[in-house]
Amino acid sequence: MKLITKSLLGIFLLGTLFTSCSKDEGCTDPAANNFDVEALKDDGSCTYDKLPEEVHEESHITFNFMHHFDGIPVTAANFNQFNFVTANGDTISITKLRYLVSDMRLYTTSGDSVMMNGYNLVDLTNGTGLSYEAGESDLGAFAGIGFNFGFDTTDNAGNYLDLNSANWNWPVMIGAGYHNMQFEGKYKFNGADSLYAYHNGTASNMGAHEQNHISVRLPGIALNEHNVVVTIEMNIAEWFRNPNTWDLNANHSNLMMNYGAQKMMQANGYNVFSLGAVSQRK
């Protein structure tokens, strides 16, 4: 129906163009130097300035998130399999992994930073948020890439309808706001399957709440082209390794209420991310 009305209109418009005009010939391109408002038929006389090549002064930056466990690529396709061994020697599977990144930024060589606003929920389980268009920045060399794993204290006090809808909230009594990460699966203990829920967010100690996000800083890049895709890699194994060798049998569940566990996660989290491939094109 809409299509029909559209084409009817089109025909009608063409009709008016043809019938309501004189038969003068001339240049009919409004973009030309010698555009003739009275010309009806183009006679090939249009002249143009030499078109400048399109020049972009800024880069459009997309972040891709990739995941591996000490080099073994991890996607939802190899969830639910006991494929991975932690630094402590625990054999684990993954059943869910999602985490929040916010305030993606570029550090300038003078020590300033260029903020790209917003946040992104990376959800490996559903394959959403694996690619995130963070915005624009001027071309040039930058000293570092940064982002927050989770929200900083100010952002954590905000109200985000999409995150609420994703059931991403962190209980009020242990600091409110949002999870940084939900990472779940099973580990083998004495041959039997046990569950772990490695959830990270505000650290709460007897009613005192302490921010627990991670300010990640990665090496710099030079932005040369209009479209830049930056890969951020997470080595999941690092959550269990450095500086805290993680014993899943001691810390597997109910970690949200566990101040010590939350701070150990934060310490290990500083080693989790690295800069992967960067691709640039016009």
């Binding site: 418009l13 008016t16 163009l17 019938t19 309501s20 005009c21 004189s22 003068d24 009919t28 408002v37 009275e38 010309a39 009806l40």
Partner: peptide, 18 residues
């Protein structure tokens, strides 16, 4: 469309657009 049809016409030959 209307603007274009007005522009592309000589002044003395403007016909009412139905």
């Amino acid at each position: 469309g209307m603007v274009i049809s007005f522009y592309s016409c000589s002044k003395n030959k403007i016909e009412p657009i139905p």
